[in-house]
């Protein structure tokens, strides 16, 4: 049990500290790296409570794909040297009240959820089928997700698809005058179309490209 506690506190302290460092570090790229560290330690916490499937999916989806794209964008935008001025800049101070309101709202939401879960567990209608210990948690997750909650699951997939299509539609623009490469054309070119052997008379030259 002691070892369990030690590991739990190590990972949770790393998670909290790196979450703070995401907002506190001056360098944007460093922020993304701290975010990755945060994801990794949270997936470790998932594994510790026995949700190994969730932990691994967290690693694959968030760290392996989403954070790579974050990093990609942050590096490309060249905001690495931007200074994060804490409550100092005149422009940024206008956003502080909004941010504070939203963060207090989220804070109280978390308190309500956790408090309710702790002191009034009967409020939350937890399906009994979740707590099957005989099968691995990948199996039980699949059995619930693809049967009872199939519509919610499908709808969330659709929402992601809509977001993706929306992003493509927003950034897509038709450009004219582009030279596109057609692989079929390139491969099926014959020697006769590309090469021509000419007898060049001296001092006359030859005209090409006409």
């Amino acid at each position: 049990m002691i070892a369990h506690a030690i590991f739990f506190y190590t990972f949770s302290i790393i998670a909290v500290v790196s979450a703070i460092m995401v907002t506190a570090s001056k360098n944007t790229v460093h922020s993304v790296f701290f975010l990755i560290l945060d994801f990794i330690s949270i997936s470790c916490l998932f594994i510790m409570i026995g949700a190994e499937f969730l932990g691994m999916i967290m690693l694959i989806v968030y760290v392996g794909a989403v954070a790579v794209l974050f990093l990609f964008v942050v590096m490309m935008l060249n905001v690495a040297q931007q200074k994060n001025q804490w409550f100092a800049g005149e422009q940024s101070s206008r956003h502080i009240p909004v941010g504070l309101i939203i963060s207090t709202l989220i804070f109280f939401e978390i308190i309500i959820v956790i408090g309710g879960w702790k002191y009034k567990p009967e409020i939350f209608d937890i399906n009994n089928s979740i707590a099957q210990t005989s099968i691995s948690n990948t199996h039980s997750l699949g059995q619930i997700l693809y049967t009872d909650y199939i519509h919610v699951f499908q709808i969330s997939g659709m929402i992601l698809l809509v977001a993706m299509v929306g992003a493509i539609v927003l950034t897509f623009r038709q450009r004219s005058g582009l030279k596109r490469q057609s692989y079929i054309k390139q491969i099926s070119r014959e020697r006769a179309e590309g090469v021509e052997v000419l007898e060049v008379q001296s001092n006359k030259g030859v005209k090409i490209d006409d």
Binding site: E52, F53, M56, L59, G64, V68, S136
Partner: peptide, 16 residues
């Protein structure tokens, strides 16, 4: 239990 996912996750972290 999730050996193949672990392998996949680690190989996808390799890009970092």
């Amino acid at each position: 239990n999730v050996g193949i996912l672990y392998l996949f996750a680690v190989s996808s972290l390799g890009v970092y």
